[in-house]
Design a protein around this nucleic acid. Structure first.
Lengths: 208, 208
DNA sequence: CTTGAAAATGAATGATCGTTCATTTATTTC
DNA sequence: GAAATAAATGAACGATCATTCATTTTCAAG
């Protein structure tokens, strides 16, 4: 007799599948895909190894699912993000990227460390998404360079440099540390702005 | 009867050991430590698996050797690097870092992707070297910030941001591409300079 | 409550893993 | 060239790997 009726949402059906995803994500992030066994994942989920195959056909499919989901959610999140319309586009993108990546250290870690372990088809699919995401930043840089708002040598090189810098936060930032998320975000925004000679004070888009 | 006397240098003794290192480096960089077997390494060297154990006691020792050697050589290279004395210290360091890392993509890749696969003792040793290297840049930034040459929020955060940005070159730069090493180097130097508000034209150290 | 389907079990498959070792082969030392 | 030493072989070890499957258990729908 539960005091509040247990949600009968979609049965227990899809529950194990998402527990598998969660366990695999944590283990892959910590030990690496190749070093994690299906037995470890099963043990973490609290199930026998064979049961995993009711939800994912192979170990590789778990990795593919995690990485494609991450990229898909990242792109969706950007599309539906509505930054303050006065904010400079580069600043808006960088703030979005920093926040999203600080909140999902494991996903980020797996998604850029395990590319090597994707089979050819899966790599192509994930890499296409990654390029779509980078193209967003490249477009912003091209626009800003065209009208003189940013100073930069090459939009694609700058894209890779900035993405590497920002994504790197996930490799060292720990919520338990002394720096708050907001502080780290602000410091990195300053670095990004200066890297393209956008005066940090002038991050409001000029209208008219 | 060799036309030119075969170098009897140190016999064939250490020759296999360095072939093992080279093979392991290439394989680890391409497939990851955990995904590479001792049999693959032996096959690449042209030897039976058991022979590897005449040179390295375990697979883990090969990884430790590769990573510690890389860090040691990196620190030695910096110590013995003699940049033009008029060059701004940050520019000198960044140029050194970029060049060193573009020339050794495999070493760099292994050294920052395989940290997870080091046993505790080995990780501690490698990480200590890594921190020694980062401390060099942090020191440069602190000096420059103290006398107003650079604008930055936090030397340690800036160190991590710049190192991530610069090291990221190894993940995408290919000598076969359209961009020359010198071009990439120059673009990144501009990014670094602007990131700390050091006017790119003013990269000569002022004396007096 | 009955029925059909999905999920989980528990045991097994063959393959591959890192590592060992007695033996043979190659190299260095005297 | 003989003796000593190191390297390489080839076969084997037990452990663990991803995956399969007949069977049992659990769950959702009628």
């Amino acid at each position: 007799m539960p005091s509040k009726a247990q949600r009968p949402v979609q049965g227990k059906r899809r529950q194990t599948a998402s527990k598998v995803r969660a366990a695999a994500l944590t283990l892959f992030a910590r030990y690496g895909y190749a070093a994690v066994s299906m037995r470890q994942i099963a043990s973490e989920v609290g199930v026998q190894p064979g049961a995993l195959y009711n939800h994912f056909p192979t170990k590789q499919d778990i990795l593919k699912d995690l990485m494609l989901s991450h990229m898909g959610e990242l792109l969706t999140a950007w599309t539906s993000a509505k930054p303050h319309p006065q904010t400079d586009p580069l600043v808006a993108f960088a703030r979005f990227h920093i926040r999203y990546h600080m909140e999902r250290a494991d996903e980020v870690f797996v998604s850029y460390m395990e590319l090597r372990n994707l089979e050819a088809d899966n790599f192509a699919a994930v890499d296409a998404e990654r390029r779509r995401y980078e193209a967003i930043l490249t477009g912003i840089l091209e626009d800003g360079a065209a009208n003189g708002r940013y100073a930069l040598d090459d939009p694609k090189v700058t894209t890779r440099a900035l993405i590497a810098m920002l994504t790197g936060i996930a490799t060292w930032y720990r919520a338990s540390g002394t720096l708050s998320r907001q502080t780290v975000e602000d410091y990195y925004i300053n670095l990004v702005c200066r890297a393209v000679s956008l005066e940090p004070g002038k991050t409001q888009r000029e209208n008219g």
